[in-house]
Design a protein around this nucleic acid. Structure first.
Lengths: 260, 260
DNA sequence: CGTTTCCTTGACTGCCATCAAAAGTGGTGG
DNA sequence: CCACCACTTTTGATGGCAGTCAAGGAAACG
């Protein structure tokens, strides 16, 4: 529920893209059932036979170089993308040119679902480091799921998951102060690292202070100051973008420490 | 992308509700094709034959009294709801008990899609005035759409629309000041009124200043002050919850007037 | 008619944005 | 190797917007 001028990219000159195949000219094809990321991409209770069914779906793999867009706001919606490696930043542009980061995606996560509503992507997704993705043709996925209630439900859950994710961000943006925001961000990153089998207490952030700030609704200086405050409180060790969480529990309490 | 503690209602004691049929014991059933709201509920390019197909779907109508919940966070997800009349407030609860309004729904709009991801609703929907809704069994809708690519796509678009809506709210919460927020809110209400054939320049708000503030991420006093400021600037006439927009265009410029 | 809830307005405070400067980092080419 | 540049990050000083606390009035309710 916001002014149309904010949420619609429709005022932007349409950039229809029969996109020059960025990266690989010959696209590899892969099968989901043999992918080592399958529990991450499709964790919504998809069981054996349903995953097998997914193998009817052959999709393209593509490389995206650091700084390159995977898709842009206004691009025609064709694919949903699964990140195989690397990190992406999704951002929204307001009518006046302001831009805001709306999310980060790492290996095993999906992006691009926002394009379905309008037939065009509402956001721009940019690689923060060299990355590799699976491009899943949405039409094809729909065909496959016709007649497969399981798959159909799984796709629905994927979309709903995105809605729930944004719910959390709204809570954050609407009612938290700087320390709570950054703590929530770090805990979230930590948990996603953990799910992937990487260390939940020590990781390398791929995004700048400014990008974190844009995502969390605060200025880059405030992000930096808040990192420093956490270090002083003994919660973190920070070396530029390398983070080590020293006291996860106290960090978690920070999020809920609305004094009032 | 936020801490799990924020977005998950899973820490809340499960409130499974074989809900006492609130309202009507005997549920009326209706057909979509004869509903005067059908262009509002399902505006995503659903054409004649597809709507006819919807008529295989018979669903319950239910009345909800002002102040009563339609569903609560944690309730098992069964239905998506179409508002026939009245207004609903959706709200999220953080782990520490803080609550935040995540949206308002008026006649012709859908709600409840957030429950799909977890099989339980993530938010609570409460009637702000006496209301009437259609409860559409999600399982049944899925069955119907199996074998109907059109209907399937339409459902997908509905979900995506919700994602895009939340995008707009994120932009608002992340980067606007008080005047911009309230202006964006009023413009949004105005447009939704217009779509429904009601006056876009004069309407009655069903929610309190506190609820508007919660939704926009500001305190009720600030909402009140900002209303007063708009009145002084000659943008609005305000009589409690009755609003008349005097200068829509200048109000729209307010939203984009990031001085910067 | 009393009680409660909602709204408005005022005074003060505090958090974070803004402006500014300096140090650190990485890449490029002489 | 080092000079040079562009960019990121950190830290300090200051100011403004909105939060907080408080009080009074208006409307709604039982």
């Amino acid at each position: 529920m916001t002014a149309a001028t904010l949420s619609q990219p429709s005022t932007v000159p349409v950039q229809f893209t029969p996109r020059p195949a960025r990266g690989a000219p010959a696209t590899l094809t892969t099968a989901c059932s043999s992918c080592h990321l399958k529990e991450l991409c499709l964790p919504c209770g998809m069981s054996g036979p349903t995953v097998d069914r997914l193998d009817g779906l052959r999709f393209a793999r593509r490389r995206v170089k650091a700084g390159q867009p995977l898709y842009r706001a206004g691009d025609a919606f064709q694919f949903i993308y699964a990140v195989r490696s690397g990190t992406f930043r999704s951002s929204l542009a307001a009518a006046d040119g302001r831009e805001q980061v709306s999310g980060f995606s790492i290996a095993g996560e999906l992006l691009g679902l926002d394009g379905l509503a309008q037939g065009r992507h509402a956001s721009t997704a940019t690689a923060l480091e060299d990355a590799e993705i699976c491009a899943i043709p949405y039409d094809h996925l729909m065909e496959l799921s016709t007649g497969s209630p399981d798959l159909q439900k799984a796709v629905g859950r994927l979309m709903s998951r995105e809605i729930v994710r944004e719910h959390g961000l709204m809570l954050l943006l609407g009612s938290m102060n700087a320390e709570e925001r950054l703590a929530a961000f770090l805990l979230n990153v930590s948990q996603r690292m953990k799910v992937r089998g990487w260390s939940p207490s020590e990781f390398h952030l791929r995004m700048s202070r400014a990008e974190i700030g844009s995502y969390l609704g605060m200025k880059l200086e405030t992000v930096s100051r808040t990192f420093s405050a956490f270090v002083q409180q003994g919660l973190l060790e920070v070396d530029k973008r390398h983070i080590r969480i020293l006291d996860l529990e106290r960090l978690a309490r920070t999020v809920e420490s609305r004094v009032h």
